[in-house]
């Protein structure tokens, strides 16, 4: 080999526009998995620092729930969790070798269901925050 052209990392990452269903499913699953881990740690941190007294705990929660950002983040957390669970079930089926021909359809179904559940949850999550 005299010389050759290495298109490099940028080209590798630049391919995302050409990703197919299963590739997106993988990207989203990784992302949501790690967001959930991040949330778990934040969750433990926040609650364990609010445990000095019952009053402190209540005020902490009340302050947080009074913030619009927190409410919106909660909707986001639900979206991430629901997608991770649904796609996780899909992946379990894939690992069992069941229904591999419809792997793309089951990914779209996970997305749609996630969307529907999240939309349905918005009234509950945002209730009272504008009041």
């Amino acid at each position: 080999m005299s010389q050759s052209y290495n298109r490099g990392l940028i080209e590798d990452f630049g391919r995302w526009r050409e990703f197919s269903a299963g590739m997106w499913a993988w990207v989203f699953h990784k992302f949501t998995g790690w967001v959930l881990v991040g949330y778990l740690f934040t969750h433990i941190a926040v609650l364990s620092t609010a445990l000095q007294s019952p009053d402190a705990y209540t005020t902490t929660i009340q302050t947080l729930e009074g913030l619009l950002v927190v409410r919106i983040l909660e909707v986001g957390l639900l979206a991430v969790a629901v997608f991770h669970i649904l796609n996780g079930l899909r992946l379990l089926f894939v690992d069992l070798g069941v229904g591999l021909e419809s792997q793309d359809k089951s990914f779209y179904a996970s997305l749609l269901l996630t969307g529907a559940i999240v939309v349905a949850s918005v009234p509950t999550f945002l209730a009272g925050v504008f009041g």
């Binding site: 197919s20 269903a21 299963g22 590739m23 499913a25 993988w26 690992d95 792997q103």
Partner: peptide, 9 residues
């Protein structure tokens, strides 16, 4: 293998 199915496609 992370079952992305790109190869199969």
């Amino acid at each position: 293998c992370q079952t992305q199915f790109s190869c199969t496609e």
